[in-house]
Nucleic acid binder design. Structure first.
Length: 271
DNA sequence: AATCTTTCCTGCCGGC
DNA sequence: TGCCGGCAGGAAAGAT
């Protein structure tokens, strides 16, 4: 499911096909996503050029002539570039059709994704203003995490998944990063030492960076792909491995529930 | 029927 | 008393 590495991979796959393209037509087959796709959007976007693409948290931002198109993949969304006459399938809700004969198509079976439009400074959009730092930027460091966790009784796993603390850490990578850092998911965040904050920051960075690198290998198939772009198999240390032996020490991986989500950890490697 | 995925929102609680 | 932040729980759709 789209976590930050998948979104970053999608961005890198889309960028060469979309930047500089003129939008000839916008097709909204089902506007009922997480929020309704703005009714005026097709009229607004027609004739505009995509100037640049970037990512903030798990939002894809397409800068156009008069504003920014905001895309979110939710839990099940995917984007791909196709020839413009490609027939849509059941969950294909939104197309940007370009004047070069291609289109960008959003498929989202569970419809928790979003297509929104913002004029003016994109950093001021309500969804973006209160976000914490990007996990791969320098401002996300041991001091930041240490300060963000002081006097917090919530489990550390929930705090690193809090987008006000740091963006882009979803359930899979939260579990993997905590294993890598040797920290139990249920540790009260306020009890994390400065040194362990640094270790966790580094672990989050490495976990995401390795996953993005893995995703890069799928870029070749981005256009005309039948598979899900940016969705790749990988070798998890703990995620989904309940009852299996720890790859590091051989003890049994445990599963618990935190904030209605599954957490996985090795009771001997993580303290 | 339960589970999984993201993230915003509601409501309760305690502190000042 | 009112406001604030922290936190738990709930909600959305569909495949399995």
């Amino acid at each position: 499911m789209p976590e930050l590495p998948e979104v970053e991979t999608t961005l890198r796959g889309l960028a060469p096909h979309l930047s500089g393209q003129r939008i000839a037509q916008v097709i909204v087959r089902n506007p009922q996503l997480r929020w309704p796709v703005p009714e005026q959007l097709p009229a607004i976007l027609r004739g505009q050029t995509i100037l640049a693409l970037r990512r903030r948290a798990k939002y894809l931002l397409l800068a156009c002539d008069s504003g920014t198109l905001i895309l979110h993949l939710g839990m099940s969304g995917s984007l791909r570039v196709l020839p413009e006459n490609t027939p849509p399938e059941k969950h294909d809700h939104f197309d940007l059709v370009f004047s070069n004969g291609t289109l960008m198509r959003l498929r989202d079976p569970r419809r928790f994704g979003a297509v929104l439009w913002h004029t003016g400074d994109i950093a001021l959009h309500p969804l973006l203003t209160r976000l914490g730092p990007e996990p791969l930027n320098d401002e996300f460091d041991s001091g930041h995490l240490y300060h963000a966790t002081r006097r917090r009784s919530a489990p550390i796993k929930l705090v690193i998944m809090d987008s006000h603390v740091v963006v882009g850490v979803g359930n899979i990578y939260a579990n993997e990063a905590l294993f890598r850092a040797g920290i139990r998911p249920q540790l009260a965040a306020g009890k994390l030492s400065l040194a362990r904050s640094g270790k966790l920051v580094q672990s989050i960075r490495e976990t995401l960076t390795e996953s993005i690198a893995l995703g890069g290998s799928t870029l070749r198939d981005f256009v005309h792909s039948d598979g899900k772009p940016g969705y790749f198999q990988q070798h998890y240390w703990v995620y989904g491995r309940t009852g299996e032996p720890c790859r590091q020490c051989g003890n049994t991986i445990k599963q618990i529930k935190q904030g209605q989500r599954s957490s996985f950890y090795c009771p001997s490697c993580q303290k």
